[in-house]
């Protein structure tokens, strides 16, 4: 069942402002049509500048699309006014790329989580501390973190707090915009596992934006590939890895594998893309590399 049905979504940015009129615009997301199924983890991959973050921001309405529609629950989100959208606002959350910037540096972890619940009147004031602890435990932290300020946390811990904050709003759809790209390999894995775990336990729908095909392969149900603002391929993870239909997907896959090989000596890198490793051995295109992976295993 589709949670969101995106049709011909287009987003342009003004590239040059001129007080004499004119100017030009750049189309960053072009005619994207996509169905996001309830409860799935859809990965959105593509190179830097391909428009994946912009698409993600349009989906949670941090940016207004210029054309096209996003249908949720029978209503087109693009047509709703700010006021009409307000009750839906909390259902669409986003997790950001850089955990160093994602938290207010002067707000303690507990205040940060409590603020969300207060604004949305999720629970009474007496229940707040209890709910904050619940959320912290949910993301793999504990109550000793409640009083800390962001600069007292590591990158991975900050990202967990940011995830907890978005969960405090009780969303149905979460866009995770490169949630692991500024974290080191071991933490990266933990955060992806956490997202996967939360998705299953809370029945969330997750759009995981990444440039790292190998990393998302492990948790995504389906993968959408973007290039120059257009969606070039959407397929279930297994079949995309097995038989990529678009040449750009093949290119991405190749480069993901090349990275993989370079890091062949490195334990953490080998540990990362478990799925890729298995699938590559089944993939005839990469047959010649087969022996190297087996050695690494």
């Amino acid at each position: 069942m589709a949670l969101l049905r995106v049709e011909n979504l287009t987003k342009r940015f003004a590239a040059r402002h001129s007080i004499f009129g004119g100017g030009c615009s750049r189309t960053v997301v072009e005619e994207v049509s996509l169905e996001i199924r309830a409860g799935e983890c859809l990965a959105l991959v593509g190179e830097t500048g391909s428009g994946k973050s912009t698409l993600g921001k349009c989906l949670v309405r941090l940016l207004r699309a210029d054309a096209g529609s996003i249908v949720y629950d029978g209503r087109d989100l693009c047509r709703l006014s700010e006021k009409e959208f307000r009750p839906l606002r909390q259902k669409f959350q986003m997790i950001f790329q850089n955990p160093a910037q994602a938290l207010n540096p002067r707000q303690s972890v507990a205040d940060c989580l409590a603020e969300v619940m207060k604004v949305h009147r999720r629970c009474s004031n007496g229940e707040l501390p209890h709910r904050v602890n619940e959320l912290l435990v949910l993301v793999g932290l504990n109550e000793s973190f409640a009083g800390r300020l962001p600069h007292e946390l590591s990158g991975g811990q900050r990202q967990r707090v940011a995830i907890a904050r978005s969960l405090a709003a009780e969303p149905v759809f979460v866009v995770a915009d490169e949630p692991t790209s500024s974290l080191d390999a071991a933490i990266k894995r933990q955060i992806l596992d956490l997202l996967q775990d939360l998705r299953q336990r809370l029945g969330l729908t997750v759009l995981l934006i990444s440039h790292d095909l190998a990393a998302v392969g492990r948790i995504a149900d389906r993968i959408a590939v973007m290039q120059h603002g257009r969606l070039v391929e959407v397929a279930p993870t297994e079949s995309l890895f097995r038989a990529p239909s678009h040449p750009y997907t093949r290119l991405l896959l190749e480069s993901a594998l090349r990275n993989f090989k370079v890091g062949g000596e490195n334990v953490t890198v080998i540990d990362e893309p478990g799925v890729t490793c298995r699938i590559v051995r089944e993939d005839q295109v990469a047959e010649d590399r087969d022996s190297k992976f087996v050695a690494g295993d």
């Binding site: 941090l62 606002r89 950001f96 910037q101 994602a102 904050r165 978005s166 709003a169």
Partner: peptide, 11 residues
Amino acid sequence: DFILAAKCLGF
């Protein structure tokens, strides 16, 4: 990002 997050949270 924390201001974007605040907007996203409906503050």
